Simulated scan of single mutants.
Amino acid sequence: MSRPHRRATVHDIAAAAGVSRGTVSRVLNGGYVSAEARAAIEAAITEVGYVPNNAARALKMRRSQAVAFVALEPHSLFLDDPNIGSIMLGANAALSLADHQMVSLVVESARDTERVARYLSGGFVDGAIVVSARTRDPIIKVISELALPAAFVGHPPDLDQSIPFVGIDNAGSAQAITARLLAGGRRRIGMIAAALDRDSGIDRLAGFKAALGTAYDAELVADVPHYDYGSGVKGMRALLAAEPAIDGVFAASDAIAAGALEALREAGRSVPGDVGVVGFDDSTWAVRCQPQLSTVHQPAKQLGSCAAQLVLRQLRGEVLEPGGQLLPTPIVWRESA
């Protein structure tokens, strides 16, 4: 019977290279040795077929080599929202390049928050990327108390100033695209405003108000809970009931705008003939709609990648400057307005 293959060790490398185990360890851990010693050790590694035992190394360093991706959204929205998916893919790509595993955690309820808090405090992950945190979200307190290396996508107003974030100028972007809708001759403009319990929703509504100025009418704002298609249908029906002569709509996301288009079709209103519609995100919804959506481009993959880099920098021991980073959001003008 053949014996199982024995895993090569540091001792084998040292014997083959003719150096001490300490010298081998310095090379494996990125320390300094002479060029001659390094060359001999690298040749010995190839000769003996050494494969690093990352699990043992992580245990010794008390590192899991894993980072949590915490999405504070309903389970259905986590699957359907292309923005969250793109942020997640961007984060995963950056973490993979750094040999870190991403662990996805979806928080929909208070029970989920308690479970995730226990998981984060258990040493199973080295850091966390948090998406869609609300104002006064319990997860903010949990991460602050754990002093866990973390980065937020978005900036809740009560976020601990020591925790970095990456985001976009939601207010400025909403103001810019609403102003362009006005410049196209629309006069009775409404908004389907979503997620008013978090910074993105609050800021997009603020930008809409700023663009309209004295023409702003609170009756022409439909408040919906989520950035999803169904909310867009309901919100548009509410706006049509409040103002049948409405001729422009700013939807707080592309998915909402797609739902608004469906409600307008039901009502026999043409787009952009009778009503101009603009969205936000420049997601796959924007180009699947008929007509295609004018919208604000949100760099979702880059947001995820930047958030992951912020966590990795903390894990390397870097001290980050307080505050966050805002990425550009150009307007993409298409047929819907």
Rank of each mutant, 00 (worst) to 15 (best):
I177N: 02
A150T: 08
S231D: 13
V131M: 09
G273H: 06
D169W: 01
A93E: 15
L146E: 09
N54I: 11
A307T: 10
E219M: 00
A206H: 13
L205G: 11
R198D: 02
T178V: 15
A37G: 00
R180E: 08
I129E: 01
R265C: 04
R204S: 11
P272T: 06
L239D: 02
D254N: 03
P138D: 04
V277P: 04
V70C: 04
M61K: 13
S336R: 09
A257C: 13
V67T: 06
S294L: 05
G30N: 06
Q302Y: 01
G201C: 12
L59Q: 06
L77P: 01
Q175A: 14
Q161M: 08
A14Q: 10
I189D: 05
V287T: 15
T295P: 01
A8K: 01
D99L: 14
A66F: 03
D247K: 03
D281M: 02
V70H: 00
A68I: 05
R111S: 14
V103Y: 08
R316A: 15
A39H: 10
A194Y: 06
A210M: 11
E219V: 00
L95F: 12
A37V: 08
G123D: 01
V48K: 02
P74R: 10
R57P: 01
A39L: 05
S294Y: 03
T9G: 11
I45T: 07
P74W: 11
P322Q: 12
E243I: 00
H226G: 04
F78D: 06
A44G: 00
E47A: 09
R237W: 03
R63I: 02
V142F: 01
T9V: 10
E266V: 03
G90W: 09
A176R: 13
L264F: 04
Q101Y: 10
H100C: 12
E335N: 12
L205W: 04
L72Q: 06
V221W: 05
Y216M: 04
G167W: 03
Q65P: 01
D254I: 03
L220Y: 00
V33M: 01
L146W: 11
G268P: 05
G154Y: 03
D282A: 14
M1S: 13
R115C: 09
S121G: 14
R38N: 04
D223G: 00
I84D: 05
P291R: 10
V221E: 03
D228M: 07
A218E: 09
G323Q: 08
Q309F: 00
M1H: 13
I177R: 00
V277W: 00
A263C: 05
N54K: 06
D137G: 02
A93G: 07
R134L: 15
S20N: 11
G127I: 07
L146N: 08
A193E: 00
S104W: 10
S25C: 05
P330H: 13
G207H: 12
G324Y: 05
P272M: 09
G31N: 09
Q325P: 00
L315F: 13
H11R: 14
R198Y: 01
A222H: 05
R269D: 11
N54H: 13
Q298P: 01
R118D: 15
D158E: 10
